[in-house]
Amino acid sequence: MAGIQEHPGEQAAGDPIKLLGIRDTPLSVDEVLRAAGDDTAGGTALFVGTVRNHDGGADVDALSYSCHPTAEAELRRVAEKVVADYPVRALAAVHRVGDLGIGDLAVVVAVSCPHRAEAFEACRKLIDDLKHEVPIWKHQKFADGTEEWVGAGSC
């Protein structure tokens, strides 16, 4: 509403981007959730992407992720765009690279906003743009001996 200011407690403090990273070590949901926590937020949305045992009707035996050297900078650019477009109070995103097993965490993102609808929208935008714009590629090995690169078209 015009003329009504936000309550001082609703003001975001400092940079809302609290944690970004591309790592070759296991990811932690708890770490991301803690980083995205904020006392001014009424809603926090979390997305956890895991390695599944199939893709496109084929059984996946193994996979690995690799990235371009600019991946972290691109991740920051994506996060900054989400912060610019939504009332983000805190944001965290980490993606794994290297060899992963079935069930391993591949990506964890979380966004806190004043209200749940904004948090859901911002979190979805963050993971969707991360997957489409950050140069991280998945190399899948299937049970039948075939292999496939996924995401290589984004480079």
Rank of each mutant, 00 (worst) to 15 (best):
G43T: 11
D59A: 15
R23P: 02
A13R: 15
A62C: 00
E80P: 00
A35F: 11
R77N: 06
H68G: 01
A41N: 04
R23Q: 14
H54S: 14
L63P: 07
V60W: 09
T44F: 00
V32I: 15
A45F: 07
A35S: 14
L75E: 11
L63K: 08
T70W: 00
S64R: 14
L75A: 11
P8T: 07
E10I: 01
H68A: 08
L20D: 04
E74N: 09
K18P: 00
G56K: 05
R23K: 15
R23H: 13
A84N: 08
Y65R: 02
A12M: 10
A79V: 07
G42A: 07
V82G: 06
D55T: 05
R77M: 06
D24M: 06
Y65A: 01
R52E: 06
S64D: 05
P26G: 06
A35V: 13
T50S: 12
A45C: 12
Q11V: 14
L20F: 02
V83I: 10
A45I: 09
T44Q: 12
T40P: 00
P8C: 02
S28C: 13
G14I: 04
H54L: 03
A45E: 05
R34A: 15
A12D: 00
Q11D: 02
L27W: 03
Y65I: 01
R77T: 13
V32E: 02
A79N: 10
I22K: 05
D61G: 01
E80V: 00
Q11Y: 02
G9L: 14
L63E: 08
A79M: 11
A13K: 14
V29K: 12
A35P: 12
L75K: 11
L20I: 04
R52M: 06
P26Y: 05
I17C: 01
A13G: 02
E80T: 06
E74D: 12
A13C: 09
A58T: 07
P69H: 13
A45R: 09
R23D: 08
L33D: 00
R34S: 14
P26D: 10
K18F: 00
F47K: 06
T44L: 11
D24G: 15
D24S: 15
G57K: 08
R52I: 03
A73W: 04
R76E: 14
L20T: 02
A71N: 05
R34I: 14
L63W: 08
V32L: 15
G21K: 10
E31T: 13
A73H: 13
H54P: 10
A84H: 05
N53S: 14
V82I: 13
L63H: 05
V60I: 14
V29M: 12
G14L: 08
L19G: 10
P8K: 06
L33W: 01
A36W: 04
A62M: 03
Y65C: 03
E80G: 08
V51M: 04
R76C: 03
G49W: 04
G21V: 06
D61F: 03
R77A: 13
T44V: 11
G21A: 06
A71E: 07
A71Y: 01
D38C: 09
V48M: 13
